[in-house]
């Protein structure tokens, strides 16, 4: 078992698959959510996961950071199997993964500055207050919200919250980004801005990403590859153009 794991780990690193999911199964109260998902994400690649509501897209990415424990199957991130890691090692892996939640999940008792400072202060104890402040301002400039530094999350619009959430996630310089419906609940113009920002950040920092979305404009803008999730399984994958011309009615329904 130990040798097998080492071989898999070595293989993953050589192929530069930052994420490798094998035969992932997950059920909640006899309700099957994931039914044998296999997925690989290469370094620098943007993978969009498309599927209807309740298809298990969010559960899939939560398995990658250990928020949800799979019933069966293996999840490798940076060549390490997530379910076998102890809490300390899991946290070391988590630092290199950014997760943007559907509603940004900003800490509502903290200002924007404190939201960004919170992870920075915890993981970079050698940085002085001034150094941290510079990094925070730089991240806020990157998402175009430097002026909101002293605002509370309740004073921000949906789009602004998403941008701040993105800045907070990127502040730890992750190698992998997981986006859980980054454009849901936003108007078309703001959705486009967020999609463009995701792409810009990915290019700038050479980040690998998994983007969970229903928004086809977001998928078109950001995807290097799209995978389609149906009834807990990946039923198709390819580029936006390839899937757009698919003969499958279910797949086509997303592009109409």
């Amino acid at each position: 078992m130990g040798n097998e794991e080492t071989e898999i780990q070595t293989a993953s690193t050589e192929n530069e698959n930052l994420i490798e999911i094998k035969g992932l199964h997950k059920s909640f109260n006899h309700n099957v959510i994931l039914n044998g998902v296999d997925l690989k994400v290469k370094k620098g690649e943007n993978v969009v996961v498309l599927g209807k509501s309740g298809a298990g897209k969010s559960v899939l990415i939560k398995c990658l950071v250990g928020l949800v424990e799979p019933d069966e199957g293996q999840v490798f991130v940076f060549g390490k199997e997530i379910s076998t890691l102890n809490y300390k090692d899991l946290n070391e892996t988590r630092i290199k993964i950014g997760f943007l939640f559907q509603n940004a999940a900003l800490y509502d008792s903290m200002t924007v500055r404190e939201n960004l400072d919170f992870p920075l202060k915890h993981h970079n104890r050698n940085l002085s207050r001034e150094e941290r402040e510079k990094i925070i301002i730089k991240e806020l400039e990157d998402v175009g919200l430097k002026d909101s530094i002293d605002k509370m999350p309740s004073e921000l619009s949906g789009g602004m919250s998403k941008r701040i959430g993105l800045a907070r996630t990127l502040i730890l310089k992750p190698d992998i980004m997981l986006y859980d419906e980054p454009t849901t609940g936003l108007d078309t113009a703001t959705s486009k801005e967020i999609s463009a920002l995701i792409l810009e950040m990915q290019k700038k920092n050479n980040i690998s990403s998994i983007i969970i979305t229903h928004d086809m404009t977001c998928a078109k803008t950001t995807a290097d590859r799209i995978v389609m999730l149906k009834e807990g399984k990946i039923i198709a994958e390819g580029s936006y153009e390839e899937l757009q011309h698919s003969d499958d009615e279910w797949i086509k329904s997303f592009f109409d």
Partner: peptide
């Protein structure tokens, strides 16, 4: 109420995935 609302708005999960216990 405070921790409950943090839980439903995924703030506790956000803390967890930021590697903060």
């Amino acid at each position: 109420a405070e921790l409950g609302s943090m839980k439903v708005t995924e703030q506790i999960d956000a803390m967890e995935v930021s590697a903060i216990n």
